[in-house]
């Protein structure tokens, strides 16, 4: 159970870099406007960033595309956990039948 000095330094540097990105929004937060176009933009962050994260997964294969649509439909009627179950179930069945693109 040893820690190499160069590895320790790299992990510490990664930790500082990560923390900098996570605290920066809290530091600039109070200076951001309460209304107007910049506020509209900030209010859109959750939907915009989450969409960007999943976009490549959605189009990664026919099973994923079908499962994504199934998840959207399920999410309009079920709590998140139910929608996740529908999505994962659909992707498993889809991969069995379709494979990749």
């Amino acid at each position: 159970m040893t820690i190499d000095p160069a590895t320790f330094l790299a992990i510490l540097a990664m930790a500082i870099a990560t923390y900098a990105t996570r605290i920066s929004g809290f530091i600039i937060g109070p200076y951001l406007p309460e209304e107007g176009r910049l506020r509209q933009a900030l209010d859109a962050v959750p939907a915009a960033v989450l969409t960007a994260v999943v976009a490549p997964t959605i189009v990664s294969g026919p099973a994923e595309l079908i499962a994504s649509v199934a998840t959207i439909i399920a999410a309009r009627r079920l709590p998140a956990l139910g929608a996740i179950a529908v999505g994962v179930g659909t992707v498993l069945v889809g991969r069995h039948f379709f494979g990749g693109w």
Binding site: V53, V54, I58, E64, T71, I72, A75, A83, I84, G87
Partner: peptide, 10 residues
């Protein structure tokens, strides 16, 4: 993916 899709839908 399913979690994030359901959150975006919400």
């Amino acid at each position: 993916a399913a979690l994030f899709i359901s959150l975006v839908t919400g």
